[in-house]
Amino acid sequence: MQHEEESTLFGLMAEFETPDDLLVAAKATFAAGYRKIDGYSPLPVHGLGDAIGFPRTKLPWLVFCFGILGGICGYGLCYWVSVIDYPMNIAGKPLHSGPMFIPVTFELTILFAALSAAFGMFIANGLPQPYHPVFNVESFARASQDRFFLSIEADDPQFDLDKTRNFLNGLNPHEVAEVEN
């Protein structure tokens, strides 16, 4: 019985009314030693990532690398076409007319960087993800509207259904719910 319950339980979820309540609760939960935690909010809550121990995102490095790659592709394309594969004398200009390759180089730098920012973010976030256990909580529909949630997952080493529930109840939530898998 005990075993079965553990496998169908994703974790516990507390509901809060304001972003500040959520932030305070997240800090307390992290301080209590829980690590498999996440906050859910209808707007970005500043400091919540730090509070649950999420390290700074490395997205800027990805975007930087793709930007450089885009620039190399842009200039490389112009150079390869104009000098190597299809050399043509246009108004006596040199085949390698660098300044005239800059607009295309610039646009491809921006294009590669912007696409990597958007798709990198979605891929790192694991989206699109059609199913996630948190949606099983009925009141969670308000996480995209006007309520703030904090979850502690069942595979956290410190997780114990009764103790964790008591802990969450002590954080002054609106309600604590079990999240089915």
Partner: peptide
């Protein structure tokens, strides 16, 4: 919505991506 659930970790990356896109759109 791609299954968006407003996770704090997602928001962190999301805000960074928005900022980067804004920074890239400006010279563009």
């Amino acid at each position: 919505s791609l299954g968006w659930r407003g996770s704090a970790i997602h928001w962190e990356r999301y805000e960074m991506a928005s900022l980067l896109l804004a920074g890239l759109s400006t010279p563009l």
